[in-house]
């Protein structure tokens, strides 16, 4: 009897804690939606009103019409998609080499590459800016995207996965006369799809959310990525919070879609690599 009571108490405590946390975690998002569907004049009210009196989609129309938000989204799409494709192209072969090929200096090279994860990006901003200035790619989308390719997180995830592919499969192919490139293309890549999907998704999200570097490298508002555009919303639209919130929601649509479709992969990828934004 005593034991059953204590289980009951435990359940009550845990469930209440859970519900409180749930409310705290859901409410800001709900509030973002509520603000975005109100008239600007209704938002600026000193008294508490939890539900919009005159719900409207005017702010969304205004966001699309009178700001460059679509342009910024498009820029972010271009940057993130090219970052994710190119990341895979450079990461997959070296990850395979680290996992399966015996070549001299491999261990040292691997640690030299992984050490890149320790470098805070702030150290690179001044020299990269100078370099890109010399290349003539300051204020371009290419300049926004390129530094992302040197991040070694994807290599780590792919190497772990490739190591798990049985070497016997490769050996059989070698005996049949295939070379490395053949083995890589017709065995490793098809079997590594799951890990590659994880890398691609994580690199898309982190490219989409990147802020410091796009803020530095791009000065022309038409070249802003969405994160920089949203950060400057407050400066340009002052107290029009309804518009600002609808902009913030529009800017988050790709992440909501990605999350809905790839939830499991995103979570697995993070648990595996422990990358933190």
């Amino acid at each position: 009897m005593n034991r059953r009571n204590s289980i009951k108490t435990k359940n009550i405590i845990l469930r209440s804690l859970e519900v409180i946390l749930l409310i705290i975690w859901i409410f800001p998002l709900v509030w973002m939606v509520i603000t975005s569907i109100q008239l600007e004049s209704d938002v600026i009210s000193e008294s508490l009103r939890l539900w919009p009196e005159n719900p409207t989609f005017e702010n969304y129309q205004k966001a699309f019409r009178s700001t460059q938000i679509l342009r910024w989204m498009l820029n972010s799409v271009v940057v993130s998609i090219s970052a994710m494709v190119l990341t895979l192209i450079v990461d997959a072969p070296i990850a395979y080499a680290f996992a399966k090929i015996d070549f001299p200096g491999k261990q040292i090279l691997f640690w030299a590459v992984m050490a890149g994860m320790m470098v805070p990006f702030q150290v690179l901003i001044i020299p990269l800016y100078q370099q890109f200035n010399a290349f003539g790619i300051v204020n371009t989308l290419a300049g926004t995207m390129l530094p992302r390719l040197a991040l070694p997180v994807g290599i780590f995830i792919l190497k772990q996965f490739f190591e798990g592919i049985p070497t016997a499969l490769e050996e059989a192919a070698f005996i049949d006369g295939a070379n490395r490139y053949r083995v890589f293309g017709s065995i490793i890549l098809p079997l590594g799809k799951a890990a590659m999907a994880t890398v691609v998704i994580l690199s898309f999200i982190s490219a989409w959310n990147d802020f410091l570097w796009p803020l530095i490298i791009v000065s022309d508002t038409a070249k802003y990525t969405i994160t920089v555009g949203i950060a400057n919303f407050q400066g340009t639209h002052g107290t029009d919070y309804a518009l600002i919130m609808s902009g913030a929601l529009i800017a988050s649509i790709p992440q909501f879609i990605f999350y809905a479709f790839f939830r499991k992969r995103i979570i697995e990828g993070i648990a595996m690599s422990g990358i933190k934004g």
Binding site: L21, L22, W25, I26, P28, L29, W31, M32, T35, I205, W208, N209, F211, I226, T227, V228, I230, A231, F233, Q234, Y241, I244, M245, A248, A251, S252, Q255, F258, Y259, R263, I266, I267, G277
Partner: peptide, 21 residues
């Protein structure tokens, strides 16, 4: 899902939202 969702949003979205709250 609810606890994790904010993490995938960009920090500028989070920042503007909380500055408004």
């Amino acid at each position: 899902n609810v606890f994790f969702l904010p993490y995938i949003l960009s920090m500028t979205v989070i920042g503007t939202l909380w500055a408004w709250l």
